[in-house]
């Protein structure tokens, strides 16, 4: 009975666990990948996971403020993508490469 309940009754915790899984995958991407563009994509994945949990809290608490926060997160994410990609373009012009293995000029 408990198992079927968990499968058919979708509650807040389902969305939160999904959000946690997506966030962890994004974090793994940031830690493991070496392509600058894929790093930025993984950051976007993490921001989306946070958005899911904001909207889930907003629905299950009956409070609209969470959706406002999602607006702000989306705007900041778009700005972050724009700046990150501009930096990637200028890095590519400098090094002819987007693999972070080759950016060693800041090493002491």
């Amino acid at each position: 009975m408990q198992e079927t309940n968990m499968l058919t009754q979708i509650g807040l915790e389902h969305y939160l666990v999904l959000s946690a899984i997506l966030f962890s995958m994004g974090m793994a991407g940031v830690l493991m990948r070496r392509n600058l563009i894929v790093l930025l994509m993984s950051v976007e994945l993490m921001l989306n996971a946070v958005n899911i949990s904001f909207v889930a809290f907003s629905k299950f608490n009956g409070n609209i403020e969470g959706q406002i926060m999602v607006f702000f997160v989306m705007t900041i994410a778009a700005a972050e993508a724009a700046v990150g990609l501009a930096l990637a373009v200028s890095i590519f012009k400098r090094f002819k490469e987007v693999n972070i293995r080759f950016f060693e000029h800041l090493k002491g």
Partner: peptide, 27 residues
């Protein structure tokens, strides 16, 4: 915003880079 604008931005920048094969994708 995401599936439209941001992803178009990503794909455009990827097209600028000409990355057919990727050496050492993972750490």
């Amino acid at each position: 915003v995401y599936a439209g604008a941001v992803m178009v931005l990503f794909v455009m920048v990827l097209m600028l880079f000409d990355l057919k094969h990727e050496l050492q994708a993972f750490t």
